[in-house]
Design a protein around this nucleic acid. Structure first.
Length: 479
RNA sequence: CGGGGAGUGGCUCAGCCUGGUAGAGCACCUGGUUCGGGACCAGGGGGUCGGAGGUUCAAAUCCUCUCUCCCCGACCA
């Protein structure tokens, strides 16, 4: 429960984040190291994220499926890069029912291998393609250093898996899903992101090309908020996923995979949150509006609550998610602070004076103070609230974008670059070599985030070695 | 896994150095007064001091091992 002030965001960003997650009751630490419990308010947020994505997946022809949690250990070994990337962080089951297993099982770190195995049974003809699947599940990766939502041993996500007849089709799919993530981030989460291509060293283990959306957090650090992989024929070859084409030739499929996790909740917290707590984008907030009734006497209480319930009914009928805070024993001021902590986008204060005047006081979460005069009558409330929620959604995005732009520096020298990554993103020419990338990481702690899809066509010189470069990459310290 | 910090009612912490049988504030429960920006008074419940072992007449306190959390690095969505 919220009773004390949070640490200030500017003074101790990390502690601010940790306490906010706990105090807003999004999640709590589980008794196992690195694991968390997602609490009702956090899960409600995740459900809204799920719905926003799932409808986009369905609209583009994907179907949901459920693959098992356990994968035979040998599956992981079948794809060279995959095994190299994931072996160090596997959780392995060696005993089942009291017996040592003939073959150990890994708890899925991701499902490309078992999906590939099943596809080899299901896919025989070009007529079976494309296969467009997605699953909502959790996976386990034995990370060394964990942080609530951002990196836990088990995390919830969706993983999409598709198989195609041609390289072109698979590439289009990979890019399409990146676009969907971008659209979701920008329009639903109000988080401006940079879609781009990862360097070889930052690529998914087993992918030919990895794309990501990169977001800037409130401390200037980068967070990979979603990824889409073009897997080439790597997994199709490893698992013999083949089909007969129209000419009767046996061909390997081209596959993709793409994912977005509960880490995204961390991004929402760190992009929009302030010293008062969470600031949730209206499209994803569990409650878009909270109604706080204000009264002294029993008579006032009766009148105010009746009006408040009417407000709730009106707004709910208009498709708005409303919470009416009828809790006894907390002062209005306490409730204001509590809902600010939880990031509800819009607050309606309803007291005897408002009821008498047939009006309501509105306060936006994304900026201080109140919206001055409330709408004249309750009749106009739904319209006013709808309009305000749209405004808030847009203002949150614009503010985050302005912040990112203010903290993104186009660096043309290594000195500029080094100071840029202290506070945000550096956009710099890079020769593409992993040597330069590695040295940059060592010397500045900044990693290559992505080569943005959209950028001016210009030639330049690698910010480190000076060799010619055709495009700029974003570098930043990352979560 | 290396370096640093910390585990004492739900939370923040005092007590530990110098062993003597657990305390404060907040939160929670009850009653009353309050209520337009984190109310007040009175009464009450709740802790085998992270866990295990050891030393001792006696351990929150001393010793050993272990688990967990936070910060900084290596690994990563």
């Amino acid at each position: 429960m919220a009773d004390e002030k949070l640490p200030s965001r500017s003074e101790d960003f990390s502690e601010w984040y940790n306490q906010l997650v706990l105090r807003a009751e999004l999640a709590d630490y589980a008794p196992v190291r690195g694991c968390m419990v997602v609490r009702p308010y956090g899960w409600a947020l995740w459900e809204n994220i799920q719905q926003a994505l799932d409808r986009r997946f369905k609209a583009t022809g994907h179907e949901n499926v459920a693959f098992p949690l356990f994968i035979p250990r040998s599956f992981i070994d079948k794809e060279k890069h995959h095994v190299e990337g994931f072996s160090p962080e596997l959780a392995v089951v060696t005993i089942g029912g009291g017996e040592v297993l003939a073959e150990p099982l890994v708890v899925r770190p991701t499902s490309e291998t078992i999906v590939g195995h099943m596809w080899s049974k299901w896919i025989k003809s070009y007529r079976d393609l494309p296969v467009l699947m997605n699953q909502w599940n959790s996976v386990v990766r034995w990370e060394m250093r964990t942080k609530l939502f951002l990196r836990t041993l088990e995390f919830f996500w969706q993983e999409g898996h598709t198989a195609h007849a041609t390289r072109e089709e698979a590439e289009v799919e990979t890019r399409q899903m990146l676009d969907i993530y971008t659209d979701f981030a920008v329009n639903d989460a109000a988080i401006p992101v940079v879609p781009g291509r990862k360097s070889d060293s930052e690529k998914f283990a087993g992918a030919d090309i990895t794309y990501s959306i990169e977001a800037m957090m409130g401390d200037g650090k980068a967070l990979q908020a979603g990824t889409s992989h073009f897997l080439g024929q790597n997994f199709a070859e490893a698992f013999e996923v083949r089909y007969l084409d129209q000419g009767g030739q046996l061909q390997h499929c081209w596959t993709t995979s793409w994912g977005l996790s509960t880490r995204f909740i961390g991004a929402i917290i760190m992009v929009h949150g302030d010293d008062q707590g969470l600031v949730l984008p209206p499209k994803l907030a569990p409650f878009q509006v909270v109604v706080v009734p204000i009264y002294k006497s029993e008579e006032e209480k009766t009148v105010v609550l009746e009006a408040a319930r009417k407000v709730k009914t009106t707004l709910t009928a208009g498709g708005i998610r409303v919470k009416l805070d009828e809790r006894e024993g907390m002062s209005p001021g306490w409730k204001f602070n509590d809902w600010e902590m939880r990031g509800v986008p819009l607050r309606i204060e309803l007291g005897p004076k408002d009821v008498a005047k047939q009006s309501a006081m509105l306060a936006r979460r994304d900026r201080p103070g109140r919206e001055g005069k409330a709408p004249a009558a309750l009749d106009g409330l739904l319209q006013a609230v709808t309009a305000l929620l749209d405004e808030i959604q847009k203002a949150m995005h614009d503010r985050a974008l302005a912040f990112r732009q203010a903290h993104t520096h186009v660096s043309n020298s290594y000195d500029e670059f080094k100071s840029a990554v202290e506070t945000g993103f550096a956009s710099a020419h890079w020769c593409g070599s992993s040597e330069c990338e590695g040295r940059i990481k060592e010397e500045t702690k900044a990693t290559q985030r992505c080569i943005p899809m959209e950028q001016p066509r210009e030639t330049g010189a690698c910010v480190l070695c000076g060799k010619p470069s055709l495009e700029r990459a974003i570098f930043a310290r990352a979560y």
